[in-house]
C-alpha cells in the first residue's frame, strides 16, 4: 500500500462511516414518515388524475357539441328558408335569405369564440393531467434502487437488515417514490387551491354555456324535424304531382325520429357535476361514486352528439 493511500484512509474512513449512518438514518426516517402518508398520497393523486381526465374529456366533448349545435342551427335555418320559398317573391326571398344568413353568422361566430375558450379549458386540464400522471415516481424508483445498491457496497450488512417484516433494500426502494408522490400531491393540492376561485367561475360559466347550447339544440331539432316532415312528406303528398320514390321511407324515418329531451337533461348536468366534483376534490370530500356520476354525465354529452348527428342525416 502506498504511503499516499494510507495517508487518505484515516481521514476518509470516519467521514464515510458518518455519511453512511446519516444517509441510512435519513432514508429510514423518510420511509417511516412517508409510509404513514403513502396510501393517502396515492389515493389523492388518483383523484387528481381522474378529475384531470374528466376535465379533458368534458372539454373535448364540449368542443364537439359546439360544432354540432352550429350544424343543426344551419340545417334548421335552411329548412325554414325552403319552407317559405314558395310564398315569397324573388326580392322577398333575397331579403329574408340575407337577414337570416347574417343572424346565423353572428351566432356561429359567438359559438366559434366559445369553442376557442373551451380549448383553453382543455389546455388547463391537459396540464393538470400531465402533472397528475407524471411517471416521475417510477423513474425515481429506479434511481432509488441504484442508490440502495451503492449504499450496500458501503455497508454489506444493510442488504440483510429488516424493518418489521420488510427487507430494508425493498423498503428503501419504495420510500423515495412515496416521498415524490407526497411532493406531487402537495404541488397539485396547492395549485388547485390557488386556482379554485377561477376554476369555480369557469365551471359555473360552462354550466351556462351547456344549458344555452342544449336548449338551442332541442329547439333547433324540433324546428328542423317539423320543417323536414312538412317539406319532404306532407307538402308533396298534399300538392299535385308525383310523390318522390322514397316518400314512404322518408315518412317512416321522420315520424320515428324521437327528440332527446332526457339525454339533453343528463348532458346539461355534466358541467354542474364537474363543478361539484371539483369542490369535493379541493375539500377532500370525494365520495366513492362521484367520479362515476361525472363520467356518466360527460357520456351523456357524447350521446347527444351521436344522436344529433344521426337526427340531422338526410
Amino acid at each position: 500500500m502506498s504511503p499516499q493511500t494510507s495517508s487518505v484512509r484515516p481521514r476518509l474512513k470516519p467521514l464515510l462511516l458518518c455519511r453512511r449512518f446519516d444517509r441510512v438514518a435519513m432514508l429510514l426516517f423518510l420511509g417511516l414518515a412517508a409510509c404513514s402518508l403513502s396510501s393517502c398520497a396515492g389515493r389523492r393523486i388518483g383523484q387528481f388524475d381522474k378529475f384531470a381526465t374528466a376535465g379533458k374529456t368534458y372539454s373535448e366533448a364540449m368542443t364537439k357539441l359546439t360544432v354540432e349545435a352550429g350544424q343543426i342551427k344551419i340545417d334548421a335555418d335552411s329548412e325554414l328558408l325552403l319552407t317559405n320559398r314558395d310564398a315569397l317573391s324573388p326580392e322577398e326571398r333575397s331579403s329574408t335569405y340575407q337577414n337570416q344568413t347574417e343572424g346565423l353568422k353572428d351566432v356561429l361566430a359567438v359559438m366559434g369564440d366559445l369553442r376557442a375558450h373551451t380549448q383553453l379549458l382543455r389546455k388547463y386540464f391537459s396540464a393538470l393531467a400531465a402533472l397528475s400522471q407524471s411517471d416521475a415516481p417510477s423513474g425515481i424508483g429506479e434511481e432509488a434502487a441504484n442508490l440502495v445498491g451503492e449504499l450496500q457496497k458501503l455497508s454489506p450488512s444493510l442488504e440483510k437488515a429488516t424493518i418489521g417484516n420488510a427487507n430494508v433494500k425493498d423498503f428503501i426502494g419504495a420510500v423515495v417514490p412515496i416521498v415524490v408522490a407526497q411532493f406531487q400531491r402537495a404541488a397539485l393540492e396547492e395549485q388547485l387551491r390557488k386556482d379554485a376561485p377561477m376554476l369555480e367561475r369557469q365551471l359555473e360559466l360552462q354550466k351556462a354555456v351547456l344549458a344555452a347550447l342544449a336548449e338551442g339544440i332541442e329547439a333547433d331539432l324540433e324546428s328542423l324535424s317539423n320543417a323536414r316532415s312538412l317539406n319532404q312528406v306532407a307538402k308533396p303528398y298534399v300538392q299535385e304531382g308525383d310523390l318522390p320514390k322514397t316518400w314512404r321511407e322518408d315518412r317512416r324515418a321522420l315520424l320515428s325520429t324521437t327528440l332527446m329531451a332526457a339525454s339533453l337533461d343528463d348532458a346539461k348536468d355534466a358541467a354542474d357535476t364537474l363543478k361539484k366534483t371539483f369542490v369535493a376534490l379541493v375539500e377532500n370530500k370525494i365520495g366513492p361514486g362521484d367520479f362515476d356520476q361525472l363520467f356518466a354525465d360527460i357520456d351523456a354529452i357524447l350521446d347527444v352528439i351521436e344522436m344529433t348527428q344521426s337526427a340531422t342525416e338526410e
Binding site: L120, L121, K123, Y124, S126, A127, L128, A130, L131, S134, A136, G139, I140, E143, V180, F183, Q184, A187, L188, E190, Q191, K194, D195, M198, L199, Q202
Partner: peptide
Amino acid sequence: LEAGAKDLKAKLENLEQVQ
C-alpha cells in the same frame, strides 16, 4: 385560466427536478 395552466406546467418541471 392560462396562468393556471402555466403554473401547472412549472410544477411538473419542479417534479422532474426532484427526479
